[in-house]
Design a protein around this nucleic acid. Structure first.
Lengths: 156, 156
DNA sequence: CTCCCATTGTAGCCATAGCTACAATTTGTC
DNA sequence: GACAAATTGTAGCTATGGCTACAATGGGAG
């Protein structure tokens, strides 16, 4: 990732971000999406079945077990989850926290879409794509619209 | 991109999409985001400066000219734009149409975020990430919320 | 006309997220 | 306990989107 500062003479001093910074942010978001999707899925599957295997994730995302394996390797290195060879996948504390936040945000986005009149099917699909790009500030506005208070961090 | 059908015995016939299908859709969306960002940027830069060079795009996205070059190669192959070697970038008709739709959707998402009370800076950033994941159906709800009619350009 | 500089292209590298094919391991069933 | 099935790992390929380094091109300034 570049710092983006050599060529930009910075004509604007106001707090407005440059388009470069915005796109860099979007790219950074991208790098987190997979992690969020995976910890969310692990949490969900563990809640449903007790344990989560790589094969469960492969079925869940409809990708090959190899893809799952590689992604799990990365997420293990990032400290979000752990798994012994041929063993089940478990979330670390960090992973559990990320999963909770993701699930909560997912729920909020979904309910918000439903609240403004989007049909259930579309809402499910769009929420999946949108959730990763909704900032805390925007999430608060969603919650405000839903007439709720910001939930106590894990009230699901 | 896989078709995802060998291993899925398709137990559910109801209209509800499986999670697999939803994630496949998100991955497909992903493949379009760059294209949309680029044609949108080209249209914007052409509108501002008359022509658009690769270097303009590199500055706009804060990436190297090599990255731009490779992406332009792909988009040329996809028929969204054309450019002679060492020449400026131009949108094809298809590219122009895609740019218009993207710009319009971008505007709608941005205005919608502002309308629900998101601050300007956050709205700019979130809109950039969200826009690619908003379906036509959801866009219509956004427009309805804004009290507008679906604009004549793409009233589908 | 030449020379310099910005722009573009090319080569080659990295990481992520896909895949198939094949090997290894675990598990479950006789 | 052995054998089959499911699961996981490994090797090696593809495409996208990043990068640096170096070569080529084109447009201006002298």
């Amino acid at each position: 990732m570049q710092s983006g500062s050599q060529k930009t003479p910075r004509k604007k001093s106001p707090p407005a971000r440059t388009s470069q910074e915005i796109f860099a942010q979007v790219r950074r978001d991208h790098a987190m999406e997979t992690a969020e999707d995976y910890v969310e899925a692990v949490a969900k599957i563990v809640a449903q079945q007790g344990t989560c295997r790589g094969a469960d994730l492969a079925r869940h995302f409809d990708v090959s077990h190899v893809t799952v394996s590689k992604i799990l390797t990365r997420l293990k290195a990032e400290g979000l989850l752990r798994a012994r060879p041929y063993g089940p996948v478990e979330l670390t504390d960090t992973g559990t926290r990320l999963a909770s936040m993701s699930q909560q945000r997912h729920e909020t986005v979904l309910h918000f879409l439903l609240a403004i009149g989007v049909d259930k099917e579309t809402a499910r699909i769009d929420a999946e794509g949108i959730e990763h790009h909704v900032s805390q500030a925007t999430l608060k506005r969603f919650l405000a619209f839903l007439g709720q208070q910001p939930p106590p961090t894990s009230s699901r």
